[in-house]
Design a protein around this nucleic acid. Sequence first.
DNA 1: GTGAAAGCGCTAACAA
DNA 2: TTGTTAGCGCTTTCAC
Lengths: 337, 337
Amino acid sequence: MSLDRRRAATIEDVARAAGVSRAAVSKVLRNAYGVSPAMREKVGNAVTELGYRPKMAARALGGRSFSIGIGYSDLGNPFFIRMLSGMLGALATTPYQAVITPTQEGARQGLEALEALIDRQVEGIVAVSPRVAQEEIERIAADTPVVMFGRHDVSSAYDAVIGDDAEGTVLAMEHLAGLGHRRIAHLTVAESETLAETPHNIRRRSYTSFMESLGLAEPVILLTEEGQDPAYASVAEVLRAGADFTAIFAAHDDLAIGALAAVREHRPDISVVGYDDVPIARNPAFGLTTVHQPGFEMGARAVELVLERLAGRSEAVHEVFAPVLCVRTSSFPPQPI
Amino acid sequence: MSLDRRRAATIEDVARAAGVSRAAVSKVLRNAYGVSPAMREKVGNAVTELGYRPKMAARALGGRSFSIGIGYSDLGNPFFIRMLSGMLGALATTPYQAVITPTQEGARQGLEALEALIDRQVEGIVAVSPRVAQEEIERIAADTPVVMFGRHDVSSAYDAVIGDDAEGTVLAMEHLAGLGHRRIAHLTVAESETLAETPHNIRRRSYTSFMESLGLAEPVILLTEEGQDPAYASVAEVLRAGADFTAIFAAHDDLAIGALAAVREHRPDISVVGYDDVPIARNPAFGLTTVHQPGFEMGARAVELVLERLAGRSEAVHEVFAPVLCVRTSSFPPQPI
DNA sequence: GTGAAAGCGCTAACAA
DNA sequence: TTGTTAGCGCTTTCAC
């Protein structure tokens, strides 16, 4: 037990202590093929004796880094947190560590973030980066397995984990229409207009075509910023000005929760439906009717996909998760329509 | 523009392309002292030409890894998410990347997680790991700057970011007592008994001594599991069995929110106060009276502390954040006492 | 089954 | 100011 505080033990030290070669130690460590039990034992002892821990950087330099890059866009969104939990949970049972980087601010930054991950020699990338051009992602995916969340622009170069946003929207809208609503507004974020093939954009387009194809009222798009508070403010303002709708379909629960507060304050007769089914939605204080997406499973699956690629798969897979309507009280306001 | 897809450009390639030495390139990259403008220019061109990106693993092998390790304990807790946002936000303006690892399951695993970070050559560690023995942390901190969240067992070997939990508890309890409550229960998690010097343990002890020193009723500790649902279930059960208290002081908002649902269902006359002031607490659907802690700032500060250490500071600092009472509606139930 | 030796890509001490 | 060179710690042929 002569632990040296000055310098961490290297594989060289272990080899010397065990009276074998570096290569032998390396093999035991990675339990590679062709090591005798005696060797295994000797090395094992030396390792614990010296408290030896392999340095990942050295390992990464010539090969594997045992790390997976995660690009996130908005920690403020509970749904993303669910996905993140799923990813980290799936990673926990593997030898991989997560390197996390923000990918939100614009296409340029988003790409930079992905490149930063590559600089780290990550063996795979799991990210939500709606603004980065597909060709850039494909370029990166040529060398490193990539799984993208919520990108409906399918590619054979990378995998994707997505929800069926068109279907989910129909679920929500049919529910509302079935309740007798004709004038339904859609609350979404401004960027949903500019970015194509993102979940929000698809929900928005599906909303519009649903309104039109069923001959309901003229679509009403309520634009706001990300977050509950902006959603509250935007909806409250519209409501005060006199709303011409009886229900709101929000692009996601965070917006729905903000909208719900405004609705309860000004027009408790208006129905609200969200999207995602974040944990707080089921709390009786909200009773938010929403479209469930299995965030945790989606996150875990994304990691699995990257691991599969690492294990050899070469054809792209696009995993589509089916949405499920969760009917609660927010779509049944006190006064019937 | 002859980008080679087979092999990423190395510093050697850049040197050759620019007609200089590797060392020169390295210096330009790190903008070290003593490089002529001409050299800078030549190298710069070659770099963009080849799309060269330094490999962090190689860099880490002999020195700096430009990564900071983050150990987290519970992504399900919105307060931790706030802190995480703060950390990641602070890191975003630096050249450091975050390597994240879970530290929750027991002391053994918690330590393993920290070691895994060390294996990654992280230059600093920011973590919440209540179960890891102080001596182990000190051992790690001897080589790598460490900042711990919520560890009240101060040490001169590592920095700490904590809230004043005793004071926060007094704030909450005084508020309740001022409202006329005498029989106040404390809802907390079971582990608060076994772990000393954690925020929950301190809140619990402060609660008890407050009850005793003010000669209020006998302390009532309600034990539950982590999460809103368990809190709801535990409180609902107690309430159904006939509660002997008029208010609940919950150890944190997540528990408080679960408790609030149960209270509203069974005994709307009971007051509820939480701790942390997570974003959802201020939503009118809850109006949760709670003790505010600046999670985002605490996270950002922790990163700053680690950066300061990296910049040379050697004395430990223990940053204590003052709690602030946020009075909302949950402590003013319909029927006055 | 085991060991010697050649890298992996970068930094830094030292020469020139 | 610029170039040479010796590592950093591990993996991995390829002989023995």
